[in-house]
Design a protein around this nucleic acid. Structure first.
Lengths: 355, 355
DNA sequence: GTGAAAGCGCTAACAC
DNA sequence: GTGTTAGCGCTTTCAC
């Protein structure tokens, strides 16, 4: 019988035994070297590494996972959109995951898909990830009742309260309410009597957070809380809302739940003859790349996506690797209000500006 | 000896033998059921499924991968940016990958990272993916010489000529030159003597493609090819280029390699007193969500990201599953020019349109 | 410091 | 239609 007998091992990738044989050591020693385990002499280590190099050896991850029970991978559930927020978060997550030596598995949810989130999480669990990050979840049911997912690995939920049951549940980036608060206060401090709000779709936690922050800022100063307009994050929905706002002379300041909607809103306002910021001030949210270059340059809130992702992932990985230890505490995200040219004092009540 | 002997199998996940035992069949039959193999009676199938359900059984992917030599996963290399193009492509890819029953592993490259692409591909290979898609690659070296990667699984390169050596190399979405051609022709047909170009960073294949398409359109009609400005995809770089163009009265039409730069460029033009589109026409590329709502609404080229991703992936999966068969042919992507309000005839020489 | 042996939970071949 | 027998290439005990 030739060694080629059995399931085709002809022309197959080299295994650790092959490396061991070439280096003149046992297979276990090869394993030790590749896992950076102690108790390997420098000489042996070098020999093994050299042999591996020569053979073009690379560890078989499936075998590793099977034997160790860990896949060294983190799964992430994102929205199936190229929206700036979710996309930025995903990029931030990838960077950190790779830095920590884990692999990233991605699953999207599609808006409107009934079993979206749970289906996505399930498919990740099928793949055997060691931890899961859920980015920007949406309430699928509307009533957030018995939807609670059951997961048996640590979970990090970005920008939201946890809709899951898991051994460890972490949250990060849930400071949107604070940021909305700051944005609203900025408008108030300019002299506006109150601030209107163009909210995001209320099925999104992020949208609800921002609305809550806006409302809190208003009530904290005893201002009236005007009725809320709701968009779908798109510039088109901002445009539609803008047409309605334009017809109402009492509107002098609008806080939008994201930049796209703010841009659509400004366009509608402008077309209706209401100048921004002279007649109406507008604040966005996200600081998308073009925000500084639209007309007028948009005052907005910048989300520290990278910092949030990094901090959250660090805690998730910690939880994955130390199942029994206490989870790391969360750090508050810095609030970053970028004041540009879309906000100004109101036309009358404010300072005696040029008319 | 209790069954708990050996490495801790206490409280562990149920295995297929457990299901088999409960269903009163052999382990192999369970495997058959879960792989949708033929030759299982309806009765047995039901029993197995029921037993699995009861136990909360889910297949161990690592074991599957180890035994079968296939991971059923596709790796994708993307840029570590939230740029609309790459982000959209990634979303499109995820959708198709999941539909075809594969898992998605993602690795980013960071601009400026020396070993970016090859490092990313390597990490994917380490993970043992069955196929790789490289999205929007950049020439790391500048001279695209000996950088050629050697990969042992099929590869799909999006929007570019293949920088790799692999058993199968597919390309998709490499129709950017055609689209740039169309955009340029649109401007020419409006009566402009020639069209200037604000290119993307030339290390990007996509940027080079668009430049080539623009140049081809110009030379096809015997027009002079003006010097090219180069940006970095950002609105800021568009703004900088816009200031230079504004100082040159002969510029009446500019084709930008993406929408962000076009928006920055328009802002610079406007600030300099050059009206868009009356004095200068501008065309973008991508059709980002806010393109229709900026001032003026942007004429742009829409890339069919979803269609491209879908078609490309279908071919990649085919290649993965039929290593010996001929690769599927590529279909040409449809060109989609969205004409909005940022383009018009030139101030003088144009056709006698309504004044 | 190093090695031998025993699985991890599945799929692949073949027998029945 | 179904079961039996071998591995897949590692990590994990435990012995030396």
């Amino acid at each position: 019988m030739t060694p080629e007998t059995g399931r085709g091992r002809s022309s197959a990738a080299p295994r650790s035994v092959d490396v061991a044989r070439l280096a003149g050591v046992s297979q276990k020693t090869v394993s030790r070297v590749f896992n950076d385990e102690p108790y390997v002499s420098e000489d042996v280590r070098r020999r093994v590494l050299h042999a591996a190099e020569q053979l073009g050896y690379r560890r078989n991850n499936a075998a590793r996972a099977l034997a160790s029970g860990r896949t060294r991978s983190i799964g992430v559930v994102t929205l199936g959109t190229a929206l700036y927020g979710p996309a930025s978060l995903l990029m931030g997550v990838e960077r950190v995951v790779r830095d920590t030596g884990y692999a990233l598995r991605v699953v999207n949810t599609v808006e409107g898909d009934p079993a979206g989130l749970s289906g996505a999480v399930d498919s990740l669990l099928d793949q055997g990830v060691d931890g899961i990050v859920i980015s920007e979840p949406i309430d699928e049911t509307g009533d957030g009742a018995d939807t609670s997912l059951r997961v048996d690995v640590p979970v990090l939920v970005m920008g939201a309260p946890p809709p899951v049951t898991a051994p460890v549940v972490l949250t990060a980036g849930d400071g949107a309410d604070l940021m909305a608060h700051t944005a609203t206060e900025h408008l108030l401090s300019l002299g506006h009597a109150t601030v209107h709000h163009l909210a995001g779709p209320q099925r999104w936690y992020a949208a609800r957070d921002r609305l809550a922050g806006w409302r809190a800022a208003l009530t904290a100063q005893g201002r009236t809380v005007p009725p809320v307009a709701e968009g779908d994050w798109s510039a088109g929905s901002g445009y539609a809302a803008g047409r309605r706002f334009a017809a109402d002379d009492t509107v002098t300041a609008v806080f939008c739940a994201n930049d796209d909607m703010a841009i659509g809103l400004i366009r509608a306002l402008t077309e209706a003859g209401r100048r921004v910021p002279e007649d109406v001030s507008v604040v966005g949210f996200d600081d998308i790349p073009v925000a500084a270059y639209v007309t007028p340059p948009l005052t907005t809130v910048r989300q520290p996506f990278d910092a949030v992702a990094q901090e959250g992932l660090k805690r998730l990985v910690h939880a994955v690797e130390n199942p029994t230890a206490d989870p790391l505490p969360a750090g508050g995200p810095p609030v970053d209000l970028i004041v540009r040219a879309s906000t100004a004092p109101p036309p009358d009540g404010g300072a005696p500006t040029t008319d």
